[in-house]
Amino acid sequence: MKTNPANQKPWIDCPPSGRLLRPQEVFDRMGLSKSLVYAMIAEGTFPPFLKVSARAAAMPEAWLESFVESRAEHALTQTN
């Protein structure tokens, strides 16, 4: 997986592949509240949802996976 230099938005270089996850599935998988996810999206620290129709939004599964991988890498490289 190719990431941008700052590794702050790893989903930018990730092709939108895999299943399209509806917002509730993203909240459930991440264990985060709806308001926190939307706040992180607004800050640019969480992958955005794509509008797939006038009343539906979804996130490519690959984007969520790249976000989780980058957070795991960051956690493993942290020194205490």
Rank of each mutant, 00 (worst) to 15 (best):
1 M>N: 12
1 M>V: 11
1 M>H: 14
2 K>M: 11
3 T>N: 07
4 N>K: 02
4 N>V: 14
5 P>T: 09
6 A>N: 14
7 N>V: 10
7 N>L: 13
7 N>W: 10
8 Q>E: 14
8 Q>L: 11
10 P>G: 09
10 P>Y: 10
11 W>I: 05
11 W>A: 11
12 I>E: 15
12 I>P: 00
13 D>L: 15
14 C>R: 09
14 C>Q: 15
15 P>G: 14
15 P>L: 14
18 G>Q: 08
19 R>V: 09
21 L>F: 04
21 L>S: 05
21 L>K: 05
22 R>W: 09
23 P>R: 11
23 P>I: 04
24 Q>L: 11
24 Q>S: 12
24 Q>H: 06
24 Q>E: 15
25 E>T: 14
25 E>H: 14
26 V>C: 09
26 V>R: 07
27 F>D: 00
28 D>M: 00
28 D>E: 05
28 D>T: 01
28 D>A: 06
29 R>S: 10
30 M>Y: 02
30 M>D: 00
31 G>K: 03
31 G>D: 09
31 G>P: 06
32 L>G: 04
32 L>E: 01
33 S>P: 03
33 S>Q: 08
34 K>E: 06
34 K>T: 01
35 S>F: 03
35 S>Y: 01
36 L>M: 10
36 L>T: 12
38 Y>S: 08
40 M>R: 09
40 M>S: 07
42 A>W: 08
43 E>G: 06
44 G>R: 01
44 G>F: 06
45 T>Q: 04
47 P>C: 03
47 P>Q: 08
49 F>Y: 10
50 L>P: 01
50 L>A: 10
50 L>M: 13
51 K>H: 15
53 S>A: 05
53 S>T: 06
54 A>M: 07
55 R>C: 00
55 R>I: 00
57 A>N: 04
57 A>P: 00
58 A>K: 04
59 M>N: 05
59 M>F: 05
61 E>W: 07
62 A>W: 02
63 W>T: 06
64 L>Y: 08
65 E>Y: 06
66 S>L: 04
68 V>E: 12
68 V>P: 00
69 E>L: 11
69 E>V: 10
69 E>K: 08
70 S>K: 03
70 S>E: 13
71 R>F: 03
71 R>T: 00
72 A>Q: 10
72 A>T: 13
74 H>D: 13
74 H>K: 13
74 H>P: 00
75 A>L: 13
75 A>M: 13
76 L>T: 00
77 T>G: 06
77 T>Q: 07
78 Q>H: 02
78 Q>T: 03
79 T>Y: 03
79 T>F: 12
79 T>D: 12
80 N>Y: 11
80 N>K: 05
80 N>H: 09
